[in-house]
Design a protein around this nucleic acid. Sequence first.
DNA 1: ATGATAAGTCCGCTTGACAGACTCAGCCAA
DNA 2: TTGGCTGAGTCTGTCAAGCGGACTTATCAT
Lengths: 163, 163
Amino acid sequence: MSTAVSEQVPEAMNWSTENCTISRTMDILGDKWTFHVLREVFVGVRRFEDIRARAGVPRQVLTERLAALIERGLIRRHPYRLPGQRERSEYRLTQAGIDLYPVLVAMIQWADQYLPLDSGPPIEPRHRGDCGERVTVVMQCEGGHEPDPREVAFRPGPGAQPR
Amino acid sequence: MSTAVSEQVPEAMNWSTENCTISRTMDILGDKWTFHVLREVFVGVRRFEDIRARAGVPRQVLTERLAALIERGLIRRHPYRLPGQRERSEYRLTQAGIDLYPVLVAMIQWADQYLPLDSGPPIEPRHRGDCGERVTVVMQCEGGHEPDPREVAFRPGPGAQPR
DNA sequence: ATGATAAGTCCGCTTGACAGACTCAGCCAA
DNA sequence: TTGGCTGAGTCTGTCAAGCGGACTTATCAT
């Protein structure tokens, strides 16, 4: 019996990374600018020029990222016309986009802990309307627990491919 | 009174993006390869060559990303020696890294809904040990609700800077 | 000594980001 | 009707980054 160094060969080594869920998500989100763009749309900034100026993203890159986000179904183009003005385009979250809230809230929560600012959080997720309270994410398991992050592990599921 | 088009000028337009929490998080995580690397460390793959081969990341990029993740405090280098072998390096999550679990779980949850595979989820977050049940994230507000994503909004907090 | 292996470094090519100028369409004021 | 303004792009040349493949170094096994 050799000295145990955690797992000699981690279980994950037996499984392919081919169809990994994180990769597939990061193919959509995992880009420096995509997240900046999404942030703007999330906080209600919806017009090309506003997004460009606030996020500091080069126009060409913004064009390309917006097109990608539309193609992936996270935002949609929404033409509209203000009275007395010509038609313009807004970009709005689709349901798939809105359902990214937990991801962003989890990030903000992490950053508020590990990258805090002296002045406090610049942005807070809150329950809209009357309630108005701060929103956080918690992990829950189907056994009814709220496991500590140390008690969570990623395991291969039914779609895992052997290598 | 002009025709209302949601908010004519979104509230967020009044606030700087300078110190945005999402940006600061994405400065650390928002890179195609960083997330691939983190995924490997999360599933227990800890050695340079294993990470490189599984994630398909160029060596040079891996070197650079590991150094950045160490500098940011998400992983640490852990030298060890298997009996009868020379010393090697492992990369392990720090507490700050482990506390990213909710972010990854939220992503997986989103992807399982919007990018499902016919064969089912390839990876599942589970409660370690006896419980072993699937773990999900839920949003909760301090008013005791579990708001739907549509009922959540990002608002400026105490650290928000006017522009 | 020879070979194997982990963990890098080095090199040259190609791709993508970037800033800045240009375009185009619709509206507005004169 | 002409000229200007603005939002939403496109075009262009430069430059940094990613990339695959070869090379390097240290340590251990035979």
